[in-house]
Simulated assay, not measured.
Amino acid sequence: MSQTELSNVDLYLQRLGFDSPPPPTLESLRELQSRHTCVFPFETLSTMLRLPVPIDLASVERKILYAGRGGYCYELNNMFLALLLHLGFEARGITGRVVMGGPEDALVARTHRLCLVTVSGVRYIADVGFGGMVPTAPLRLDTEEEQPTGHEPYRIVHQDSSYILRAKVAGEWRPMYVFDLQMQSDIDYQIGNWYVCTHPQSPFMGQLMVARTGEGLRRTLNNGSYAVHRTGLESVRRQITAVDELIELLEREFEIRVPHHPEFRQVVGQVIAPQPML
């Protein structure tokens, strides 16, 4: 079986709420992306435990469809692209540099994977693996106009040979990531993923980051800080201080089946412990 083929498309579509394969239309793409970010959470439990993260399609399917887990961009967007291709979409993977929270001209590593999809001759980016700020609708590439989604509005700005994705947060346009349309091969994703899940300077190493969308809301967990962001309302935040409380939160709000790992509780206790003041 090639790396672009899914072993159980029916189960994948059932998890997304489809009784039959949808046609390769823009409406279907919107529905697929919206449902995907609601059903399959972004999560870094493996890198929190400092475990390797295999990104071949068979491993990703086992983890997300059968083991009750989520994943990050190299997993979620890999599986999503395979589904789009199976449904007959014209699509391929591309990569970008995450600049959220920093200067948008920073030449950081290419550590984000997303999808380029062409529907009726119009190009869109589709992304189901960008954590707490994942776009919940496909975004048209060749326009700089503001584009609404079920959550924040986004816009794509073309600069030289690259594009900058920005999101409107609290009335301010903030950069998310910079990307281009360069062709990517499996080794490009493997190198980026290797950095994300093994390099000591990776922001994911030893950290717990979880995100899931809902209708008009986003749930995020950063180590012990849990927040619910509702469109047009103040965010509600609380600090998780107990291991059992965090595990219950992962299972109830994010529908994640926590892994059976001998050090899981110990590591969770470390990531939710108050950090010393510098």
Results as ranks from 00 to 15, higher is better:
Phe179Asn: 03
Thr143Lys: 06
Cys197Gly: 11
Gly93Pro: 08
Pro203Tyr: 09
Phe18Glu: 13
Met100Phe: 15
Glu75His: 07
Gly68Tyr: 02
Leu83Gln: 08
Ala137Val: 05
Glu104Trp: 09
Pro23Cys: 15
Glu251Pro: 00
Arg30Ala: 15
Met48Ser: 03
Leu116Ser: 05
Gly206Ala: 10
Pro103Gly: 04
Ala91Tyr: 02
Thr143Gln: 08
Glu43Asn: 00
Glu27Thr: 14
Gly101Ser: 14
Thr118Pro: 13
Arg62Thr: 12
Ile164Pro: 03
Arg30Cys: 14
Leu45Pro: 08
Gln207Ser: 15
Ala109Met: 15
Ile55Phe: 13
Phe89Asp: 13
Val98Ile: 07
His158Ala: 09
Ala211Arg: 14
Thr198Leu: 12
Arg69Gln: 00
Val99Tyr: 03
Glu152Phe: 13
Asn78Asp: 05
Gly93Val: 00
Thr4Val: 02
Arg140Cys: 04
Arg230Ala: 14
Pro103Leu: 07
Glu263Thr: 01
Val178Ala: 07
Arg237Phe: 01
Leu26Ile: 14
Asn222Phe: 13
Ser161Thr: 12
Trp194Asp: 14
Arg30His: 12
Tyr226Asn: 09
Thr4Cys: 01
Phe179Ile: 07
Arg230Lys: 11
Phe89Glu: 03
Pro22Arg: 07
Arg265Phe: 01
Arg140Val: 01
Pro203Met: 10
Gln3Ser: 05
Tyr124Gly: 12
Met133Gly: 05
Glu245Asn: 03
Asp127Ile: 14
Lys63Asn: 09
Ser120Pro: 08
Pro138Gly: 04
Val157Lys: 00
Arg15Trp: 06
Asp188Val: 04
Gln275Met: 12
Ala126Leu: 14
Arg113Thr: 02
Phe254Tyr: 01
Ile256Ser: 00
Ala106Glu: 12
Gly17Arg: 09
Val98Phe: 04
Cys115Leu: 14
Thr198His: 15
Gln184Asp: 14
Tyr74Cys: 11
Gly214Glu: 10
Phe254Glu: 00
Tyr74Gln: 04
Leu181Asn: 14
Leu45Gln: 05
Tyr72Glu: 10
